[in-house]
Amino acid sequence: MDEFRRRAFEFVEKVQKLPDAASVLDAMGGVLGQHGFDYFCCSYLAPTATERPRAAVLAERLPAGFLDMYSEEQFLYADPALRYCNVTVQPFRWFKEAPYDPKREPRTAELVRRVRDFGMVDGFMIPVASPARRLGQVFFGGAAIKLPDGQLPALHLMALYGFDRSVRLGGAPQVPQLALSIREREVLTLAAIGRSTEQIADRLHITARTVKAHIRSSCDKLGAVTRTQAVMIAVRDRIISP
């Protein structure tokens, strides 16, 4: 295992024991700082009808004054990255892969310029969902990102665990989980070690369609939205041991 992945998995191992949001951000910085990641944010995509805008932020280490500017200018409604988080479950390059038209969306173009003025030139957004199925995101960014080749899955895993711990530290109610069947645990265990749907089907002598059905059932029982999140919850709660 290379150094980046090793340190990412060390973060996953210890994050559930961290006592506060600041410690979660410190741990992220310990893994990612040498790769140009200086700024971090875990937040819901939007506040609820009864929340103030800043209440949607679970944990952050962003440039001084940025959130005040963002809130005062009401950029929430012009942010292409948050908008894209509503339509994808895959990590994406911040702004570079979040589609917008600068000519037709001048407010969005202004937001992108202002963000870069604060030194957040590049980064990654990881869409996530809380156990209560409220959509959120984790942002990793900086002036010059140097993520090692092939390490986006490790960053994705860090985001899921960091967001989950931030939600729990905030006192969010937990969704009751139903017990997984033996077959569902087998499928998630194989998924956790990187096996594809077809590989799982071959190993268990079932069809790919049946594998997908077990994944969907596991997601429903665990309160997960994606396969990756289901694996994360199952490992965190020691339902499986990959």
Rank of each mutant, 00 (worst) to 15 (best):
C85P: 01
V57Y: 13
V235L: 13
E105C: 01
A143T: 08
L188N: 01
F11L: 10
T228G: 14
L204H: 06
P106Y: 05
L157H: 10
F9G: 01
T207V: 06
D2Y: 00
R6I: 13
A132F: 03
P19C: 12
S166F: 03
T48K: 13
V231T: 05
E10L: 15
A192S: 15
L135K: 13
L111Q: 09
T226D: 10
R203N: 02
V121E: 15
G142L: 05
Q229W: 05
P127I: 12
D2C: 07
E105N: 00
A132L: 15
G223Y: 06
V235D: 01
W94Y: 15
L155A: 08
F118P: 03
T48C: 04
R227V: 07
S217C: 06
E184F: 04
E10Y: 13
D117R: 08
Y39E: 04
A230I: 07
A213Q: 12
L58Y: 06
S181I: 00
F40E: 07
E3R: 15
R116T: 05
V187G: 00
G30I: 02
L45H: 02
T88K: 08
I239S: 04
R216P: 08
A22Q: 14
V24H: 11
A78Q: 01
K17A: 10
P173C: 05
F40T: 09
F139E: 10
G33T: 04
A64N: 10
